[in-house]
Simulated scan of single mutants.
Amino acid sequence: MFAIVRTGGKQYRVAAGDKIVVEKIAGDAGSTVSLSDVLLAGEGSDLKDVSGLTVSAEIIAQAKADKVIVFKKRRRHNYRRRNGHRQQHTILKITAIG
Rank of each mutant, 00 (worst) to 15 (best):
M1Q: 11
I4Y: 08
R6C: 04
K10F: 03
Q11M: 09
Q11Y: 01
Y12W: 10
V14I: 02
A16T: 07
A16N: 04
D18A: 09
D18M: 10
K19P: 00
I20P: 10
V22Q: 12
V22G: 13
A26H: 10
D28M: 02
A29P: 09
G30Q: 08
V33L: 10
L35Q: 13
S36K: 15
A41I: 05
S45E: 09
S45Q: 12
K48V: 02
K48A: 07
D49H: 14
V50R: 15
V50M: 11
S51K: 14
G52P: 02
L53F: 11
A57R: 15
E58D: 05
E58T: 15
Q62D: 11
Q62H: 03
A63N: 14
K64Y: 05
K67T: 15
V68P: 13
I69M: 05
F71C: 10
K73A: 08
R74T: 12
R75G: 08
R76F: 05
H77N: 10
H77R: 14
N78F: 03
N78W: 00
R82V: 15
G84L: 05
H85T: 11
H85V: 12
R86P: 00
Q88P: 10
H89Q: 07
L92E: 09
L92I: 05
K93Y: 01
K93D: 02
T95Q: 06
T95R: 11
T95G: 03
G98Q: 13
